[in-house]
Design a protein around this nucleic acid. Structure first.
Length: 332
DNA sequence: CAGTATGATTCTGA
DNA sequence: TCAGAATCATACTG
């Protein structure tokens, strides 16, 4: 950081003059009386270039010597003059280009994913959104989404830690550069605009770093999300018992195999699956039955007989069936 | 390992 | 918005 700042500023600073130049006023006279201005400029440039090799203490001593030098006001005015000419070139640079659309996009994405939001609500909301996208009921969410939420929280934590680190580093660096410039303004002309410009440059640099952080965070969330959805996509056959229950209901309501919300909920509870899984099952079953009536007729008969048997046994025990047996008789 | 079964997803039309 | 239809992806079976 220290060196970077010096490198950024050193090339225009006066502190490049060597000890003998600054310490001994005669040297300046000597250089001027040599009648070889090009050689002198070369020397000075050489000295300027070696500034970065010096220790901080040396530089401080040199600066102090320079500040006390009786030629300083004259040098300062010369530098002001030079700067006036140079400033024309600097002014051409555009200052602000408004908020970066890419950063905005990334911010929105992170907000939507619950990474950049205020509290954990964002993360759970995102998890719920994933649950809805995956067609699951909210009731089965807590168990299956806990892992997702945990990972998301990890990403979130890392993101915020890094962001804070970058912000801190940016502020520290800005402070440091501003102090350096303020310090230098005693020996060379440094306008507030220039300081502002330098701060702008630093902020832009840190913004690009921040954008990279946001980009990789987005990537991580996307990977996590797709992995989570892929995991849900992995199919497990329902248990034999669940299939029995669903088939029984289907064939006993063959004339109208569209269970109501309440019926679906009950079936879901009985089969230990979600309501949407019940809906999926009925959707699949209806279409597949229709496509293959002749083949599934056998299955229909089997379930019809089974239902009849259980109904009669229940009747003999004095219990009435819980669900009406509407469709079986038409399909024998 | 190929063919089939099955749960889930996506698209379409009413 | 919902059901049907097509399709995908995986599990199961001979």
């Amino acid at each position: 950081m220290e060196n970077q700042a010096r490198m950024m500023l050193g090339h225009i600073g006066l502190s490049g003059l060597s000890e003998e130049d600054v310490g001994d006023p005669d040297n300046i006279r000597k250089h001027h009386s040599l009648g070889q201005p090009q050689q002198d400029i070369g020397d000075i440039l050489q000295q300027i270039m070696t500034i970065t090799d010096e220790s901080l203490d040396e530089a401080q001593a040199r600066k102090h010597a320079l500040n006390c030098h009786r030629m300083k006001p004259a040098l300062f005015s010369v530098l002001c003059e030079m700067k006036e000419k140079m400033a024309l070139g600097i002014r051409g640079i555009q200052e602000e280009d408004g908020p970066d659309p890419q950063i905005l996009r990334l911010d929105n994405m992170l907000l939507a994913e619950g990474v950049a939001g205020l509290e954990k609500g964002g993360a759970s909301a995102a998890a719920a959104a994933v649950a809805v996208a995956a067609g699951a009921s909210p009731s089965d969410g807590s168990l299956q989404h806990s892992e997702y939420r945990e990972k998301l929280a990890q990403i979130r934590q890392m993101y915020h830690a890094e962001l804070e680190k970058y912000e801190q580093a940016c502020n520290e660096f800005t402070d440091h550069v501003m102090n350096l410039l303020r310090e230098q303004s005693r020996t060379r002309p440094v306008s507030p605009k220039e300081i502002e410009r330098m701060v702008g440059i630093i902020h832009r640099k840190f913004n690009t770093i921040q954008m990279q952080l946001k980009q990789s965070t987005c990537e991580a969330v996307m990977i996590l999300r797709s992995r989570f959805l892929d995991a849900r996509r992995k199919r497990r056959n329902f248990s034999k018992q669940a299939a029995e229950i669903l088939n029984e209901y289907f064939y006993s309501h063959l004339a109208n195999p569209y269970p109501s919300e309440e019926a679906k909920e009950e079936l879901a509870k009985k089969c230990s699956i979600t309501v949407s899984q019940v809906a999926n099952w009925f959707g699949n079953k209806r279409i597949r039955y229709k496509k293959n009536v002749s083949k599934l007729q056998e299955e229909a008969n089997m379930y019809a007989m089974k239902t009849a048997a259980s109904a009669s046994s229940q009747a003999s025990q004095g219990n009435s069936p819980a669900t009406p047996n509407s469709g079986t008789s038409t399909h024998t």
